[in-house]
Each structure stands twice: as structure tokens, then as C-alpha cells.
Computed example of a mutant assay.
Amino acid sequence: MKEYGDRMVMQITVVVNFEPERELLGLGECVKVLSPRQLAERLSKRLQSAAKQYKS
């Protein structure tokens, strides 16, 4: 784990499936997945879909 002012970079090893996705989504705007790119894109799509629920 490395800290950069008010930010932190953390590395964890997980099997990419529903459980880690759910945990990361639960952190909302407080987290950004840098890699693997496939996971970052899947989370981005799910968050965009969720945001559409709140647009009139």
C-alpha cells in the first residue's frame, strides 16, 4: 500500500467474480480500479447503469 497525500494505492489479488465486484461497487465513488482493465470496465458499466436509475 502506498499513500499519495489524500489518496492510497492498494494491490490485492482476487478471483474476478461477483463477490469482489460487489465489494468494490459498495465503495462507490471512493474507489477506482486501475487493473485488470476488464474488471475496471465491468464496474464502470455497472455504475453507469446504476446512475441512469436516478436520471429523470
Rank of each mutant, 00 (worst) to 15 (best):
M10L: 14
V14R: 01
Q38W: 05
Q48F: 09
D6A: 12
C30D: 11
S56C: 01
P36D: 04
Q53Y: 02
R37I: 06
K55P: 06
S56L: 05
R22Q: 10
V31G: 09
E3T: 04
P20T: 01
R22Y: 10
Y54E: 06
K2F: 03
P20M: 00
K2H: 11
F18E: 10
K45T: 10
T13I: 06
L43F: 03
T13Y: 08
Q11D: 08
Q38C: 05
L39T: 07
G5M: 07
V14T: 04
P20Y: 00
R46G: 01
L25F: 04
G5F: 08
R46T: 10
S35N: 12
V16L: 04
E29H: 00
A40P: 10
K55N: 12
L39P: 15
R46A: 05
D6T: 11
E3F: 01
Y4E: 14
R7F: 11
M1E: 02
A50H: 05
F18P: 09
V9S: 12
I12Q: 06
S49T: 15
V33R: 09
K52G: 13
Q48V: 10
L39W: 03
T13D: 13
L34D: 14
A50P: 11
S49F: 12
L27V: 03
R46W: 01
L39A: 04
L34R: 15
Q38R: 14
A50F: 04
L24T: 13
V31F: 02
L43R: 07
E41G: 12
E19W: 07
K55D: 11
L27M: 13
A40N: 03
L47F: 11
D6Q: 12
S44D: 15
D6W: 01
E41T: 15
A50R: 01
Q48M: 12
G5L: 07
L47S: 12
K2S: 06
Q48K: 15
G28L: 01
L39N: 08
Q11E: 12
P36V: 02
Q11S: 11
Q53H: 09
P36L: 02
N17K: 14
S44M: 14
R22E: 09
C30E: 07
E23P: 04
V15R: 14
C30T: 08
M1N: 05
G28I: 00
E21T: 07
R22S: 06
L27P: 04
E23T: 05
K45H: 13
N17R: 13
L47R: 14
L34S: 13
R7E: 08
K2N: 04
E19A: 12
Y54W: 13
Q48E: 15
V33H: 11
Q11L: 00
Q53G: 09
R22H: 11
C30G: 15
A50M: 05
M10P: 00
A51I: 03
S49D: 15
V9E: 15
P36N: 05
V15F: 05
E3P: 00
G5Q: 08
A51H: 08
S56V: 06
L43M: 09
Q38V: 13
S56P: 15
E23H: 06
V33M: 07
L24G: 13
G26I: 02
G28W: 04
Q38Y: 08
K45P: 11
E19V: 12
